[in-house]
Design a protein around this nucleic acid. Structure first.
Lengths: 142, 142
DNA sequence: CTTTCTGCAAACAATTTGCAGCACG
DNA sequence: CGTGCTGCAAATTGTTTGCAGAAAG
């Protein structure tokens, strides 16, 4: 835990009790909990903590790259008329999503370790990057 | 378009004007629009259509497997203290997420076609399936 | 001591739902 | 013609934000 306190200071943010506990809770589990779940658990140790603080702290720690958010398109749902097996290239700048196909991925065999987790039904790959248009726009600014 | 009308009837749902237009709009583009975007476009043809109908229709069509939703954890954000490069196995039943590592995926080279789309910065694979626990629970019910 | 947090309550945005009239089959 | 669909408005849910007091360095 002392590491976390140090990590906070290194990032220039105060190592408050709530932050330490939220961080501890997240580091202690591999189940990728959501804010509400973390809130419930941390509350056992800090009964007065508020859900808002949990949200705020998670955001802060994410911005400081102390933790990560499970990749997901969150904000708004997007739809697709393409029902074939395919994958997506997502532009991190403008949000544009393009389809792509890959024989290599279609033939992907999960590592043995995955067999212990459960039965795989589908494979979806998400490449993140910067689309052509945004690459050009980015260069112009510089 | 006649195909769509047929597809609707085959699924046992009425082929209304709004459904046909929403479907046409989605099929006409590869950009994976969200509900609001579809709404704006369809409104040009059916000015009286409501956003609710668009949401409802997209949901219905998705349930009937006429269209698909871009995979995403949507509902709630989930956090991760693991900052190493890794991938996820998501249980479609209980939502549990497990990490896994794959040298094969880490060495994945996107197909040439992707180079035209943009610059790839990260690769994230999401396996969907049924976790051990849910597999067992499912069998018991039967 | 001063700046940065926290807790609270209210604000927000995306999406869903109950209801009464209208349209498809 | 009857059942399912649409439009409207209100409800829900996850998440963010403004503010005043509290705490970390």
């Amino acid at each position: 835990m002392a590491d976390f306190a140090a990590a906070c200071r290194r990032q220039g943010i105060k190592a408050t009790r709530q932050r330490l506990e939220i961080l501890r809770e997240l580091a202690a589990t591999g189940e990728h909990p959501d804010a509400e779940t973390i809130f419930r658990r941390v509350r056992k140790r800090i009964p007065a903590i508020s859900l808002d603080t949990v949200y705020r702290t998670l955001r802060t720690l994410e911005e400081k790259s102390v933790i990560a958010r499970v990749p997901s398109l969150k904000d708004r749902a997007r739809f697709d008329a393409n029902l074939d097996r395919h994958h997506h290239f997502v532009c991190a700048v403008c949000g544009r999503i393009d389809d792509f196909y890959s024989a290599a991925l279609d033939g992907f065999v999960p590592p043995r370790a995955v067999a212990d987790l459960g039965a795989v039904e589908s494979v979806h790959v998400e490449l993140r990057g910067r689309c052509r248009k945004c690459q050009i726009a980015g260069k112009k600014k510089k």
